[in-house]
Each structure stands twice: as C-alpha cells, then as structure tokens.
C-alpha cells in the first residue's frame, strides 16, 4: 500500500473506466482501458469509487462517513479498515489516483 495513504490525501478517479453490473448479483466488473485489466469488485467498492468520482468525498477522512451513510451502517473501526484496504486496492489497480502525487 502507498505509504502516503493518509486521511487527508485527496483522491480522484481514473478516467474512461467501463463499469458493468448485472441484476443477478451486487458485484461490479470494471475494465481499465489503459492497462486492459478487468476487476471484479463489491458493491461497496463501487460506491466508494463513485463517492470519489462525483467529488462527494475525495479524502479517506470524508470517505468513511460517506460510505457508512451510503451503506446505512455505523462508521466504526471495521468500516474504516475496509475503506482503507479498498482504497489501497483501487490505487494499486489504477482505479483511483492521489491528486497530490
């Protein structure tokens, strides 16, 4: 994981991603045109990405309560850990990028 994944680091979404969803499950599939890679992600991960993409919550500090609200659950330590891990995954996959780097 990027060492600089701090609470206040601002994130932006990668452009031109192709998201696909089917009605028979909550999972999403995303295609990254620049790398040609395809990823299967959870609905929560897609929501997290959407919160960054629409500018609602560009930092980890903002993402945790925003994701909690979107998922209708408490912004507890478990959710914070999941958010951090998912953000790290999306960073490594090139689905999001820190603005300041």
């Amino acid at each position: 994981m990027r060492e600089s994944l701090t609470d206040d680091l601002r994130w932006r979404s990668a452009v031109d991603l192709v998201w696909t969803h089917y009605e028979d499950s909550e999972d999403w599939v995303v295609f990254h045109p620049q790398s040609g890679d395809v990823y299967l992600v959870t609905a929560a991960a897609h929501t997290l990405w959407s919160l960054i993409a629409d500018g609602t919550a560009p930092t980890l500090k903002q993402l945790i309560p925003a994701l909690a609200a979107a998922l209708n659950r408490a912004p507890d330590d478990q959710l914070a850990a999941v958010t951090r891990d998912t953000l790290g995954f999306m960073d490594r996959a090139g689905l999001v990028r820190p603005i300041s780097l």
Binding site: T20, H21, Y22, S25, D27, W28, V29, P33, V38, L40
Partner: peptide
C-alpha cells in the same frame, strides 16, 4: 447458476484479444 459478473471475469480472462480492441472488445 453463476453470477454474470463472475462469468464476465472468466470470459475476459480467457480472451486472447479483447483488450486489443479496447472498450469495444470489453463491451
């Protein structure tokens, strides 16, 4: 039954050239 998202992941993983066609190939 297999969720379609999982089937899509398998199909793209087994494709020789979808990424050469870019977004059109994935779609």
């Amino acid at each position: 039954p297999l969720p379609k998202a999982h089937a899509l992941l398998r199909m793209t993983d087994q494709s020789f050239n979808y990424n050469h066609l870019g977004t059109k190939g994935f779609a």
